[in-house]
């Protein structure tokens, strides 16, 4: 790794999910306590168009409730808790509003938050409504937030209307994506580790910063770093940071 300080290369993906349920305030706080300088979390809209922090459109995996976030109001959602895999319902933790999560991020003024707008919300409500709804909470921490999405149109609109930094998450490693990346010129390019070719070819060069998820192994990070990757997402921030420190620069 190019640095001995793992917090400068690691992104806490959905917070530290070894400490608390993913995409909750305690998970993000746990990452911040462990020294994270980059965090990532996901945003969906409720039926009454309130942006909340949750990954899946459906609540089955994280809350054990077979409903869609889009069909519940924020008030209805407030009575549902998300939990760690295998935990009882009594361990449920509140699904935070984007507003509340940004409030937490503001407490750590040197931290950058990657806020992913999920495609299911874009499909359900349309880009304009989603960008409208996330805009006020994000405006509370303008310099700390980077809006990311698989949907290039949504982040383009975000950049044009809100002037925020953006990151595009590529779905495929192909020429179409590369041309789109060059046209969009985002601040960050995100890719799933499995999307990248397994050889040692350098990643597309551009004015963006590469972020790859999920990378927990320092040796893998070292190889990716040589291919041009700067940031690595991990769901277990504290443990991965410890492994990176152990492995040395």
């Amino acid at each position: 790794m190019p640095t001995a300080d793992p917090s400068s290369v690691l992104v806490a993906h959905r917070g530290d999910t070894a400490a608390a349920p993913e995409n909750t305030i305690p998970a993000v706080q746990a990452a911040l306590v462990a020294g994270a300088r980059f965090v990532e979390f996901d945003v969906q809209l409720t039926a009454d168009e309130v942006p909340v922090v949750i990954h899946d459109e459906r609540l089955a995996r994280t809350a054990g409730v077979d409903r869609s976030v889009h069909d519940l109001t924020a008030d209805e959602l407030a009575s549902i808790g998300v939990r760690m895999p295998g935990s009882p319902a009594s361990d449920g933790v509140a699904i935070p509003t984007l507003d509340a999560m940004i409030g937490v991020i503001r407490l750590a003024p040197t931290v950058t938050a990657f806020v992913e707008i999920k495609r299911s919300s874009l499909r359900r409500f349309g880009r304009t409504v989603v960008v409208d709804r996330v805009s006020p909470p994000l405006a509370a921490a303008p310099t700390q937030v980077v809006v990311i999405s698989y949907d290039a149109g949504a982040i383009r609109e975000t950049r044009e209307r809100l002037g925020r930094r953006i990151g595009w998450v590529i779905e495929r490693w192909d020429d179409t994506s590369r041309v789109e990346a060059e046209r969009l010129a985002p601040d960050f390019l995100f890719a799933d580790r499995r999307t990248l070719r397994a050889d040692d070819t350098p990643l597309w060069a551009g004015a963006w910063t590469w972020v790859v998820f999920d990378v927990d192994d320092p040796a893998d990070a070292r190889r990716l770093s040589q291919r041009g990757v700067t940031l690595f997402e991990t769901r277990t921030f504290a443990a991965t940071a410890a492994a990176f420190r152990e492995a040395g620069p």
């Binding site: 909750t24 509003t97 409030g103």
Partner: peptide, 12 residues
Amino acid sequence: PGSNPALHDRFA
């Protein structure tokens, strides 16, 4: 520290 969503909403 506990999860206190109402407090966090007020704080934001």
